[in-house]
């Protein structure tokens, strides 16, 4: 009985399973490393959909590459900063914020005198920013700006953090789509006034470094969506901060454990420099 039936059946099943597992295993390795060659910096060239071996019937592709028209920082004379507390530099011991730190970095390359306007309001959520621009009060600033730095969304998302998991997940989609439409309206306003300026949208980092995978996933999804939205505009650069902050929270956060400190702002400024220059 054993020799005749059970043994061959076990061998057959085990070999079949081992084959399936082996191919699944190879595939897992493939999708997490398969496109290592993809450029990580902003110089990304849109790739065609051949990077991966597709599983039958499912379209998949490496996406999210930002297509940026070569910026030329030498011509940026007027810089405008808008958005929330990050834009106004809350938490920076030196009171500089990422904008001034970025300009400092720029000034190392050339001697151009740059004019900086900061209209950020701490605590702003995306809808407030959209309303702010709709007042028309800042139209002139927008029209004349060569470079516009936008930091928004952190407060939208932060509200969700303090809810329990299920609610958070339930409300996430709603919050994200509200954010995206506000962002769209902000961008539309800016572009209607100034189609030429270089824009940059600062991505979100996770100040709590929660090990909760679900929350982490949501944040990544948020950033992913923002990045997608950003990619619709060829002169809008998305500035990632998540990765830079992830393992250095202790070094980059100020005493309130929410806003960046000087070093954190410096990192953002460097990311800006890296992406824009």
């Amino acid at each position: 009985m054993y020799k005749k039936i059970i043994w061959p059946v076990i061998v057959l099943i085990a070999s079949l399973l081992a084959l399936i597992f082996l191919s699944g295993f190879v595939y897992s390795v493939f999708i997490t490393t398969g496109d290592d060659e993809l450029p990580v910096d902003e110089q990304a060239v849109p790739t065609d959909d051949t990077t991966e071996e597709p599983i039958a019937g499912m379209p998949e592709e490496a996406i999210g590459e930002r297509s940026v028209i070569d910026p030329n920082p030498e011509e940026w004379e007027t810089v405008l900063v808008m958005g929330d507390s990050l834009g106004s530099g809350v938490g920076d011991e030196d009171g500089l914020g990422f904008d001034q730190r970025y300009l400092e970095l720029l000034s190392q390359d050339d001697s151009l005198e740059r004019e900086l306007t900061n209209i950020s309001v701490p605590g702003f959520v995306s809808s407030q920013l959209a309303d702010q621009l709709d007042t028309g009060e800042y139209d002139l600033d927008i029209e004349t700006a060569d470079l516009i730095l936008i930091s928004i969304g952190g407060n939208d998302l932060n509200r969700l953090y303090f809810q329990d998991n299920e609610t958070m997940i339930a409300e996430f989609d709603e919050t994200l789509s509200a954010f995206l439409s506000n962002l769209e309206s902000v961008l539309t306003t800016i572009r209607s006034l100034n189609p030429e300026a270089q824009l940059a949208l600062i991505g979100l980092y996770d100040p709590y470094n929660l090990e909760d995978q679900e929350i982490n996933r949501l944040l990544l999804e948020w950033n992913h969506a923002s990045r997608l939205a950003a990619s619709a505009d060829a002169r809008l650069a998305y500035i990632p901060t998540y990765e830079a902050f992830q393992y250095h929270l202790a070094d980059y956060l100020s005493d309130d454990l929410f806003h960046p400190n000087g070093a954190g702002y410096q990192t953002i400024a460097e990311s800006l420099y890296q992406v824009l220059n």
Binding site: I31, D35, L38, M58, A62, I63, H224, Y242
Partner: peptide, 9 residues
């Protein structure tokens, strides 16, 4: 750094 751009469905 962790990249979320290359995710697939």
């Amino acid at each position: 750094t962790l990249m979320s751009d290359s995710t697939i469905l």
